[in-house]
C-alpha cells in the first residue's frame, strides 16, 4: 500500500479516538478488509508524528506483569483533523465526479 494511503487510513481511525499500533491496525482491517504491514503502519505513524498530525496520548499503557509489553497510544492533533478533513473532502469531490462520469448517482 502507498505510504500516503497508509497515513490517511491511520489518521481516519485515530479521528475516532486514541489507539496504539495494534488496535490501529485492527481498526484498519475492519475498515478495509486487510491489515497494513509493519513497515507501512509504523512508517506512517513516524511520518504523521514528525508532521505534527498525531502525538502520543498522555498515558503510555503498560502491562504490569510484562513491562516490555509497552504500547504507545497515539491521538490525532487539531492539525491532523484539519488535514484529514481537507483530504477527505478532496477525495469526496473526486469520487462524486467519477461516479457522475460513470452515470451513477452519488449516494
Amino acid at each position: 500500500m502507498h505510504s500516503n494511503d497508509a497515513q490517511m487510513l491511520v489518521l481516519t481511525v485515530l479521528a475516532d479516538g486514541p489507539r496504539h499500533g495494534y488496535t490501529i491496525n485492527a481498526a484498519i482491517e475492519d475498515l478495509t478488509g486487510r491489515k497494513l504491514g509493519p513497515g507501512s503502519l509504523y512508517g506512517a505513524l513516524a511520518r504523521l508524528e514528525a508532521r505534527g498530525l498525531i502525538r502520543p496520548a498522555d498515558d503510555v499503557s503498560q502491562s504490569p506483569s510484562q513491562p516490555q509489553e509497552r504500547h504507545r497510544t497515539m491521538r490525532i492533533t487539531d492539525t491532523g483533523r484539519a488535514t484529514l478533513r481537507a483530504e477527505l473532502e478532496q477525495m469526496a469531490r473526486v469520487s462524486q465526479a467519477g461516479l457522475r462520469a460513470l452515470g451513477i448517482a452519488p449516494a
Binding site: 491496525n25 504491514g37 509493519p38 507501512s40 503502519l41 509504523y42 505513524l45 509489553e69 509497552r70 504507545r72
Partner: peptide, 20 residues
C-alpha cells in the same frame, strides 16, 4: 516503535518481511 514492530513481525510471520 521497536517493541511493537517486533511483535507485529513475530505475529504476522514471513509474509510481513518484505513490507517491514
Amino acid at each position: 516503535w521497536g517493541a511493537e514492530i517486533g511483535r507485529e513481525v513475530a505475529s504476522s510471520g514471513i509474509r510481513s518481511w518484505p513490507d517491514t
